[in-house]
C-alpha cells in the first residue's frame, strides 16, 4: 500500500464519520435552532425596533440602547445595583456554598449522600412551589408569619414587620432565597467532580506529607477538578443574573420601591406589562452581554495555566 492511498482512505473515513456525526446531532440542532438560536437572533433584531406587540415593529436604530444607558433612571438607580449585589452575593456565595456542601456530602457513605444530594438539589427545581409553601409562610407580614412569630417569641421585636413590603428587607430576603436555591446543576457537577478525583492521588499526597483534609482539598481535589469547577462557576453566574422571575410570586412586579427589582424583572416589566417589546429586547441583549463578559472572566480565572 502506498502512502497516498492511506491518506485518501483516512480522509474518506473522516468524511464518513462527519456525516454520521451531523446526523446524530441533527435532532438537537433543529430543536436548538428553532427554540433558542432563532429567538435570540430575533430578540437582537427586535432590540433595534419599537414594537408594541400589535403593530408592525418600526426601526429605531440604537435608540433603545441609548435610552437604557441614559434615560432609564429605574434601571440605573435600582435594577443595575440590585442585580450586581444579587449576582455578587448569590453567584459567589452560592458557588462557595455548593462547593462546601458538595465536599461535605462526598465524605458521606453513598446511600446517605444520594439522599442528601437530592434534598439539597430539590430547592433549585421546585422554587416556584416552595415559594408559595415555605417562604410566603415564613415571611408573612402578620404575627402568624413564622419569622415574625419567632422573633416576637424571642422578644427581639414587639410588633410584626411587614417583610415583603418593607424596602429595607426585600433585597436581603431575595438574596437569602437565592442562596437557598443556588444548589443546582453546578452543585451536581461539583459532586461528580469531587468523586471523580483519582484515589491514588490522595494516597500519594499522604505519602508526600499532606496532613489534613483541608490540605487535601487545596492541593489535590481542587486542582484535579478544574473543568467541573469552571462549569459550576459559569452555571452559577448565569443563574445569578437570570434570577428574578420567580421572586415576582413573593414581591410582585414591580417590587415595592423597586427594592428587589432585578434585570429579569425589569425585562418582564417592560415586555409583558407595558408591551414595549423593543425596549425589553434591548435590556435582554444587555443582560446577555453582561453574562457573556462574566463568563469570559470566569474562563480566564479557571483556565489560567502556568
Amino acid at each position: 500500500m502506498s502512502k497516498k492511498l492511506v491518506t485518501t482512505s483516512k480522509k474518506l473515513a473522516r468524511r464518513d464519520n462527519n456525516k454520521n456525526g451531523y446526523l446524530f446531532i441533527l435532532p438537537y440542532a433543529i430543536v436548538f435552532t428553532i427554540f433558542i438560536l432563532v429567538p435570540v437572533i430575533l430578540a437582537v433584531i427586535l432590540s433595534f425596533t419599537n414594537f408594541n406587540a400589535i403593530e408592525f415593529p418600526s426601526w429605531v436604530g440604537f435608540l433603545n440602547y441609548i435610552t437604557v444607558l441614559t434615560n432609564d433612571e429605574v434601571f440605573m438607580q435600582h435594577v443595575l445595583p440590585n442585580t450586581v449585589v444579587y449576582a455578587l452575593v448569590v453567584g459567589v456565595g452560592g458557588y462557595i456554598l455548593s462547593f462546601v456542601l458538595a465536599w461535605a456530602l462526598c465524605n458521606l457513605p453513598s446511600m446517605l449522600r444520594t439522599v442528601f444530594a437530592l434534598i439539597i438539589y430539590s430547592p433549585s427545581m421546585t422554587a416556584g412551589v416552595a415559594m408559595g409553601v415555605v417562604w410566603k409562610v415564613i415571611f408573612s407580614g402578620d404575627q402568624t408569619g413564622l419569622l415574625n412569630s419567632w422573633l416576637m417569641e424571642l422578644g427581639i421585636i414587639t410588633e410584626p414587620i411587614i417583610w415583603l413590603i418593607n424596602e429595607n428587607y426585600l433585597l436581603p430576603i431575595v438574596i437569602v432565597i437565592g442562596l437557598w436555591s443556588s444548589m443546582g446543576i453546578g452543585f451536581l457537577s461539583l459532586i461528580a467532580g469531587i468523586l471523580n478525583v483519582d484515589e491514588s492521588l490522595y494516597e500519594a499526597g499522604a505519602i508526600d506529607g499532606i496532613k489534613n483534609r483541608f490540605q487535601e482539598m487545596i492541593y489535590i481535589t481542587i486542582p484535579s477538578m478544574k473543568p467541573q469547577m469552571f462549569f459550576a462557576a459559569v452555571m452559577s453566574i448565569v443563574n445569578a443574573f437570570q434570577a428574578g422571575s420567580i421572586y415576582t410570586l413573593l414581591t410582585g412586579n414591580p417590587s415595592p420601591g423597586y427594592a428587589s427589582q432585578l434585570l429579569v424583572n425589569h425585562i418582564e416589566d417592560y415586555g409583558f406589562l407595558r408591551y414595549e417589546m423593543g425596549y425589553a429586547a434591548a435590556v435582554s441583549v444587555v443582560l446577555l452581554l453582561i453574562v457573556q463578559i462574566f463568563s469570559k472572566v470566569a474562563n480566564k480565572l479557571f483556565t489560567e495555566e502556568d
Binding site: L69, M76, Q77
Partner: peptide, 14 residues
Amino acid sequence: SWEIRNLQLKKYIV
C-alpha cells in the same frame, strides 16, 4: 452628583 454624572453619561456615552 448622580444627576451630574447622568448628564455627563448622556453626553459622552455614544
